[in-house]
């Protein structure tokens, strides 16, 4: 079972793309709004070592930014 989390902000365009990508590939995910959730923001910074959104955590593998190739690889989507 893949455990997918997106750390995002409400206004970020690449977060919307990431959400769209996961939904279109029927991948279930949890989304954490780092703009309003301080704890989630700290968790994101701790995991990725940086402050840019989106950050996507796929079973512990951290992807910074929207990168379709990296998402496909981590989710084994062809």
């Amino acid at each position: 079972m893949v455990n997918v989390k997106i750390y995002s902000t409400e206004t970020c365009i690449w977060c919307a793309k990431a959400r769209e990508f996961l939904t279109s590939h029927k991948v279930k995910f949890t989304e954490l709004d780092v703009g309003s959730d301080r704890k989630a923001a700290m968790e994101m910074i701790h995991k990725s070592g940086q402050m840019g959104v989106p950050v996507i955590d796929i079973n512990g593998k951290i992807i910074v930014g929207y990168n379709e190739g990296a998402l496909k690889k981590a989710l084994k989507i062809r």
């Binding site: 206004t11 970020c12 690449w14 977060c15 709004d33 703009g35 940086q50 402050m51």
Partner: peptide
């Protein structure tokens, strides 16, 4: 860059409440 320096205000502004 991405450590408090951003080129996209719309993306990252909510982090600076």
């Amino acid at each position: 860059e991405n450590m408090g320096l951003s080129y996209c205000a719309l993306c990252d502004a909510p982090l600076y409440k």
